[in-house]
Design a protein around this nucleic acid. Structure first.
Lengths: 190, 190
DNA sequence: GGTTTAAACGGACCGCGGTCCGTTTGCATT
DNA sequence: AATGCAAACGGACCGCGGTCCGTTTAAACC
């Protein structure tokens, strides 16, 4: 445990909360695109340097803002009511997970893209969770093969960039969902 | 036909070529990341306004630079030697296409990401070609279902962002390729 | 309470992508 | 050759993300 030696200073903690609150509010007010770091700094009553000290980059700040809903989703998957959470058959859980993830990617699309900049290291952890979960469900279903990569392949079409590509062609969410269900069926059937 | 009414002025054409040549050279020299629009403009001997007039944005310029190798690949798929080109069995062509696309995405990763900015409209056309081709091959193989969306699902794991995600976990290209082959087998098997 | 020190702070500063607008220039018409 | 004009040009300009460094301050120790 080691009880994390480096104490976090009180003002630092206060500022971090202020920044996150301001950022969340501004995202709701002016949208992800129309949000500048100067603006967040001013709204939080801190200097720009402080902002970058805590969150490293715009991408990092967006990831932090996104983090709350992301962990919410994770706990819904891990411990929420079925069929998303435990208690339902693995196949149903897998389908529920995909549908839920699809909706989440659509509603938080702008935020997710902003949090997945060039490096992308930021949101890798979030993706890893979904991959691990799918991998686990595939195992439960008795699927054999390279499960981690198969999990990635199943999740890839749900990515926001893929969804936007399809929406540009006026494909409805229902159709995307149905096609994804079909994909899962084929993969699981082996 | 209409013989395109708006004549392209001679200086405009000359400048466009100069810009593209300079941009291609600089991409090779300093890489995609280390390339600034001012730098390209100066190297091409034109003003920055001219550069943005022709290519609209950095993303657009990158797409134009990428375009040459992209069309090369497309003609290899449409009319090159088998198994990538016509003449081989549809299933072999599908596998060859995936492998080829995977390698291309890896080697041109930085350029592709730079050409696929926030709007993404730039490189939508390139993606559409691959989708159409996979859709056609799936049809030849007698696969039934929502072929356009199934084609997207097959191509999605080959996307550069997915590949980089896997490479961050030290997954080799050979393993990615094998897992993708397995995915294709499952999808085609129905 | 006073002293010390490492951490946090903040805003001036930089280079970049992108825009704007006054100026120049290719080309058609006479 | 002279004229007219739409199109192309180019560089000053703007806001943004990100960095740097001199200044301030929380908190541990005496």
């Amino acid at each position: 445990m080691a009880d994390e030696p480096p104490h976090e200073r009180a003002d630092a903690a206060r500022n971090r909360d202020a920044i996150l609150a301001a950022a969340s509010r501004l995202v709701d007010e002016v949208g992800v695109e129309g949000l500048s770091m100067d603006c967040v700094a001013h709204a939080a009553g801190v200097g720009k340097g402080t902002l970058f000290r805590r969150f490293e980059s715009r991408e990092g700040l967006m990831a932090a803002v996104l983090n709350r809903s992301e962990t919410e989703w994770q706990s819904a998957v891990l411990a929420g009511p079925p069929p998303l959470g435990p208690g339902a058959a693995a196949y149903d859980r897998l389908l529920a997970m995909g549908h839920s993830r699809l909706r989440l990617n659509v509603t938080h699309g702008a935020l997710i893209k902003a949090a997945t900049g060039s490096s992308g290291a930021r949101s890798r952890a979030a993706a890893a969770f979904a991959i691990m979960h799918v991998r686990y469900l595939l195992g439960e279903l008795g699927v054999d093969g390279d499960l981690p990569l198969l999990a990635i392949a199943i999740l890839a079409p749900l990515d926001i960039t893929m969804i936007e590509q399809q929406q540009a062609d006026d494909v409805t969410l229902e159709r995307i969902e149905a096609a994804w269900d079909d994909l899962v069926r084929r993969v699981v059937a082996g």
